[in-house]
């Protein structure tokens, strides 16, 4: 690897001193919550959502009657194999696709189009290749027509927090895959959205970098509480990061399991070595297999769940 050794994200005690207050309040944040809605009301509410694609041959139902509530500050993973509709559901929550049935409410208001109080992170970092890391982080500020200079210190803080200080003026081609995804995370946080939607953000990274990114992300979120909906097909990743894991599966796909993760926070990598973690992963794996009713998979589950070797 030609990139410098990954700088470990600073310990959480150092994180607490980082000033992440916004230079200016964002307009257009979710109104119902700020206007004193009932504290128990979910921030994101997915109600009997369906998505059918109308192809030339026959309509294909990707998502059937999915319901899901996410409370403010919660980290919820959507887990399932490729093509189970979890990304489709996420894109509908982002307002990038429209459900063909049911409704999605954000702070009580229906999502009809993209909103500026949502930050989205995709599988690829999708950085502008001709811009520096810092300029890429500030990209949403330009698009949202906010004063760039006022957000510049915050962009530098964010880059510092993910261990990229010294790389602010590097172009994406000079950064490793993990570093670029960290820039993308900073970019999604720069305008302080209430909700982060992450669509398999680390699945293009190698396993070692991915583990580092999981630790880094959970450390970021300790400093900087966000409501996160995280799509992944990695059982371990979902279990490590989430407050709740929602398993999607079946054809058409729907929600097969909604499970609260029993691990305390802050989470460190050691929890993956506990028998409790292995049991949770086993339960998730069995649910995924059951949802797909794949008899071949049962055999591999019997041998694969032992000693926490889930992946």
């Amino acid at each position: 690897m030609s990139w410098p050794p990954p700088k470990r994200a600073p310990p959480s005690s150092a994180n607490m001193s980082v000033d992440l207050t916004l230079p200016l309040p964002l307009t257009n944040s979710i109104p119902a919550i700020n206007a004193g809605a009932a504290p128990s009301a979910p921030l994101v509410s997915v109600r009997a959502v369906e998505k059918t694609y109308f192809t030339r041959q026959a309509p294909v139902q990707a998502v059937a009657s999915a319901s899901l509530d996410v409370a403010r500050g919660e980290f919820v993973s959507l887990l399932g194999p490729s093509g189970c509709g979890k990304s489709t559901l996420l894109m509908m929550i982002a307002g990038l696709e429209q459900p063909t049935g049911g409704s999605i409410l954000l702070g009580g208001a229906e999502v009809k189009k993209p909103r500026r109080d949502i930050g989205v992170i995709f599988q690829d970092a999708t950085l502008l290749p001709w811009k520096s890391a810092l300029d890429n982080v500030l990209f949403p500020i330009r698009i949202l027509k906010l004063p760039v200079e006022a957000y510049r210190p915050r962009a530098l803080e964010l880059l510092n927090m993910v261990g990229l200080s010294g790389f602010e003026h590097k172009k994406p081609s000079e950064l490793s895959g993990g570093m670029r995804q960290r820039v993308a995370i900073c970019r999604s946080l720069i305008h302080d959205p209430d909700i982060l939607l992450m669509d398999e953000p680390f699945s293009a990274l190698d396993a070692i970098t991915r583990d580092q990114m999981n630790v880094a992300l959970s450390e970021i979120l300790e400093t900087y509480k966000k409501t996160v909906i995280f799509v992944t097909h990695s059982i371990r990743e979902a279990a490590f990061l989430s407050d709740r894991v929602v398993v999607m599966g079946g054809r058409p796909s729907t929600i097969a399991l909604d499970m609260t993760m029993p691990f305390p926070r802050p989470r460190r990598f050691e929890i993956e070595e506990t028998p409790e973690f292995a049991l949770v992963c086993r339960k998730l794996r069995l649910t995924i297999e059951e949802a797909h009713q794949n008899p071949l998979a049962v055999r591999s589950a019997a041998s694969g769940t032992f000693a926490g070797k889930i992946e």
């Binding site: 307002g95 990038l96 993209p114 949502i118 989205v120 990209f139 949403p140």
Partner: peptide, 8 residues
């Protein structure tokens, strides 16, 4: 897609 998500 990112631009659309940012309401560009």
């Amino acid at each position: 897609r990112l631009c659309r998500a940012l309401t560009a």
